[in-house]
């Protein structure tokens, strides 16, 4: 996996995380480094696009709220936070974790924050998938006519 793919992967986990869960895990990191804002948290929208007939030409479906920010640690590492919704704390923590995952504390941050987030998400998804599976129709054929 390339460096960018790896980073896009963890940014996705951070964006999809529940804000409270992320905050709790980030608190477990203890002292956090100071940072400067390159772009303080701001809330806006992203136009979500679909495709005609699922596979055809793009069309504008509607917008979603997104909060984004960018920050720089003292050592120069830049972190970006782009998250669903309007929670500025969520985007700040996502950006901080993004920056820390690129530096010397990467292993610690991965183990303390990223892995538990990914596991919690996987568990949530699996639980819903199991509920959906229970509603799958099992057809059976009635015997009819002459044998």
């Amino acid at each position: 996996m390339s460096e960018n793919q790896d980073r896009a992967g963890w940014m996705g986990v951070l964006a999809r995380a529940q804000a409270g869960e992320l905050a709790r895990l980030v608190a477990g990191l203890g002292d956090l480094p100071a940072h400067d804002w390159l772009r303080p948290p701001e809330t806006g929208t992203v136009m979500v696009r679909g495709r005609t007939g699922a596979t055809g030409a793009p069309f504008n479906l509607g917008e979603m709220t997104v909060t984004r920010c960018a920050l720089r640690l003292a050592d120069g590492t830049v972190g970006h936070g782009h998250v669903t919704g309007r929670d500025k704390g969520h985007s700040r923590e996502a950006a901080l974790v993004d920056a820390l995952l690129q530096g010397a504390r990467a292993d610690e941050v991965r183990a303390t924050v990223l892995v538990p987030l990914a596991e919690a998400e996987a568990a949530r998804r699996a639980a819903r998938a199991r509920k959906a599976a229970a509603t799958k129709v099992e057809f059976f054929t009635m015997v009819r006519g002459e044998d």
Binding site: E42, T43, G44, T45, V46, M47, V48, R49, G50, R51, A54, T55, P58, N60, L61, E63, T65, V66, R68, R125, R128, A129, K131, A132, T135, F139
Partner: peptide, 30 residues
Amino acid sequence: RTTLPRFGASRPVETGAMRCERRISATFKD
């Protein structure tokens, strides 16, 4: 909505990769 800045547009969503919680077809039983 009109008070918010627009950051951009998404890539078209891939509904073929949807995590389906409901999925029915009235044309194909199987």
